[in-house]
Structures are given as C-alpha cells and as structure tokens.
Design a protein around this nucleic acid. Sequence first.
DNA 1: AAAAAAATTCAGTATAACCTAAATTTTATT
DNA 2: AATAAAATTTAGGTTATACTGAATTTTTTT
Lengths: 218, 218
Amino acid sequence: MLTYTEENYIKCIYALSDDNKKEVFTNDLAEAVKTKPASVSDMLKRLHSKKLINYKRYKGVTLTRSGKEHALKIIRKHRLWEVFLVDKLKFTWDQVHEVAEQLEHIQSQLLIERLDEFLGYPAYDPHGDPIPSAEGVMKIKKQILLSEMKKNQSGEVSCLKDTSSSFLQYLDTLGIEIGSKIKIEDIADYDRSVTVILNKNRKIVISEKVSTNIFVSI
Amino acid sequence: MLTYTEENYIKCIYALSDDNKKEVFTNDLAEAVKTKPASVSDMLKRLHSKKLINYKRYKGVTLTRSGKEHALKIIRKHRLWEVFLVDKLKFTWDQVHEVAEQLEHIQSQLLIERLDEFLGYPAYDPHGDPIPSAEGVMKIKKQILLSEMKKNQSGEVSCLKDTSSSFLQYLDTLGIEIGSKIKIEDIADYDRSVTVILNKNRKIVISEKVSTNIFVSI
DNA sequence: AAAAAAATTCAGTATAACCTAAATTTTATT
DNA sequence: AATAAAATTTAGGTTATACTGAATTTTTTT
Ligand SMILES: [Mn+2]
Ligand SMILES: [Mn+2]
Ligand SMILES: [Mn+2]
Ligand SMILES: [Mn+2]
C-alpha cells in the first residue's frame, strides 16, 4: 500500500513522462510536487526500493510496469470523480480538480467499479481527458493544438492542456466548452492570435497563450 | 485544519462520551482507536492545545464547543456517504462503513452540501443513525432496546447499536431491516431470548446478544 | 493506613516527509 | 582539455505521528 505522498509522486512522474515515454528529472519533479530537489531524491530512493520506478542516479526516472499501473489507477479515480462532481453534483469544470485530488486516494476497488457503472462508463472527464479502463488502458485521442491549426481548418474542442480555474473560467467567458465547433478564420502574423468562428455563429479572437492550451480533434 | 488522526480521535471521543455527557478515559480511548494509552496521552495534549477538548490529567476528557462541532461535521459526512453508497452505488449496509471511514475526511464544504441535496436531504443513514444537520444539530429518536420491550409490545426497528459486518449479515439472514415491524410474543426467563413476530407474518427467535443490539421505536 | 491493582503519564525510539547546505556528477562553454 | 554552470545527490537536521516500556498517580482492596 502506497502513502498519499507516494501516490502523488507516481502520478506526477507519469504526467511528466508523457505516458512513460521520456525520463523524468529530479528538478522538474520537485517543481511539480512543490518541494525541493533534495526531498525528491529521498523519495526516489523509496520508490525505487518499492520497485515502482527505474532509477539510476543522475539519469532521470521512468515508471516500472507496476508503477505505471498504479499511476493509471489513480488517474482513473481522479477523472471518474470529476465526472461525478460535474454530472451528479452540479460542480462547474473549474471546481472539481481540488476535490478530486483528495478523492483519488480513497482505497476501494468496489467503490470505483460501482461509481463507473453509476456514471454510465464515461470515456472522458469534464476537461476532455480520457479515463483509463479498469484494466489500465487509456486510449489517446487524435488531436492537435488549436495553435497548430491552419487557416480555414475546422475541428471540435476536445481537451484542455491547462486545467487551472482561471483558464477554465476564461473559457467560460469566451463561450468555449468541450465539443464546441471551431473554424480558423485568420491567424495574425504579428502575435499569432487567431480569429475563430465558434459554433458557426460567433466570431472570437484568441491569444496565443490560450490557443496553445486547447486541443482540437480534426 | 485537523489531521486525519485528530479527526478520528475527536469522533471517537464524541461516540464514547454519549453525546458529550460523560467524560472519556484514556484507556477506553486507546482501545477504541486501536493504539496504546501512552499514544493517547500524547494526542490529548495536542487536542487540548488546539482547544478541542477539556482536559485535566487523570480526570478524563470532554469535547469543547469547537470539538463537538468538529465531531458532528465528521459524523454528518460519514453518514451521508453511507447513504450515497447504499442508495446510489448499491452497496449493502454491511459494506459501507470501511469506505465511509475514508470518505468522511474529504474536505469540501461544497461537496457535502451538494451531496446532501443529491441524496434528497436524508434524515437517517442505512443503519438508522440520525444525520446531523449542516448546523450541527442531531435529533435523537425516541427508541428503546428490543431487549427492554415487554411481552405483547409492538414497534418498528429503528437503529442498530452494533454495525459490524457480521451482525448486519446475521440480521439479513433473520430478515430484519430498518423499518421492520416487531411484536414481542414471548420472553424466555432462562436466557432472555425473545420470540418475535416479524412484519406480522413470520415468527423468529432472537438471542439476548442480538436483542441488546437492536433499537426499536414504539 | 498500607498494599495491590489499575489508569495514566513520561522518556525514549521509529518512520515519513520535509528542509538547508555542501559535495558530487554531468553537461555546456571556452 | 580545462573550466564553469547546472543538475543531482548526500549529509545532517527538523517536525509530526505513533509506538513501547518504565515511572508515577489514582483508585480499590485488604
Ligand atoms: Mn483534475
Ligand atoms: Mn480533469
Ligand atoms: Mn459507519
Ligand atoms: Mn452508519
């Protein structure tokens, strides 16, 4: 059984490793878990002795098979709880993350199975992120960043890179949500801001900072 | 903010104090939280310094106003989650306690308000225990132990003193649930076992060990 | 009132998780 | 290749929680 903190490290390593494809480095991890590199080194030793990570001093870490399984379980729980909060308890998409951070650590196989069933086996969370199956399989959607789209290209908002409250609330004011139809009308050379036709009926201008945080399926 | 363990102590003190009417003693508390009296003494000092308990060495403890408020909030969360698990996720009444022990520590005002609303503001949990209001008011039902009923007296099963899985599962085999109609047909002098008419159509015999763990409203 | 038993506290130990500062290793630059 | 810079680890220490065994205080029994 992992401690609360160990679970957070594992989850973080998975997130920073891009589905366990890249090594994760101590300083990046320290920043992500809001602690000091020295503390991370301590923890990496622990995680290694528990066979959750592959670890060679100074060389960065990856998750072992077991570590990745743990990570996907926690992500599954986090995202299912987010769906619960939005669909059943009428939370807004910017209110769910903090609570889900706590709920993801609840230990009960039965609970999460039944929750999944109760929610109708959702495939995506409120921010468009895919929910891993009970077997630990997560299918990645084909999607590109809005900032990478060409003029006149169309698509549908599928997922958000930044899920901070402030970003989500700003999207609310813009009227952008998961599933919104997008067509690129123009891209300004000067600042890379894009003019977008939203849901075929509204024209809005999006800064580069925003367009690099929105994924679109095309 | 209280730690997980502090919350468990506070809840336990409340439970052992019979709604804060009696002092609670170190050894009893140690047994209840499954630790050593020496550890309890440590914790009592901490809880005292946080002004959650009234504490005089060797004299037992009671909760302060603030301590009691905390206790009732935790109990409220525990029981609301139990209702959720049974009503929405099809848990049986003997499966909920362990998970609720974890869920009761989730910190979110909004979550518990919305959960309460989602469940339709239930007054009782699956074991018949009253759910404190958001303001911390818990109304005690008028009820007596089945073992204290007289011959020919009638009533309705309202609450269970023992909520262990084994007891609840035994009640399942007897066909007893919250709301079951009860009439005392006979009481054996020899072992205090009672013969009961259940729901006006079935006759069962109940040992004293069982009858002292069932509350009945009359 | 003294002795025995029970309850409680005190003193010391262990573990998880963190920190700062210093040392080491790797990488980048001259 | 030598030096400088950056990244990482190690060393040593702190705080919070919770444990055990010994000492102390209170209560009960004789
Ligand atoms: Mn989230
Ligand atoms: Mn999410
Ligand atoms: Mn319970
Ligand atoms: Mn209950």
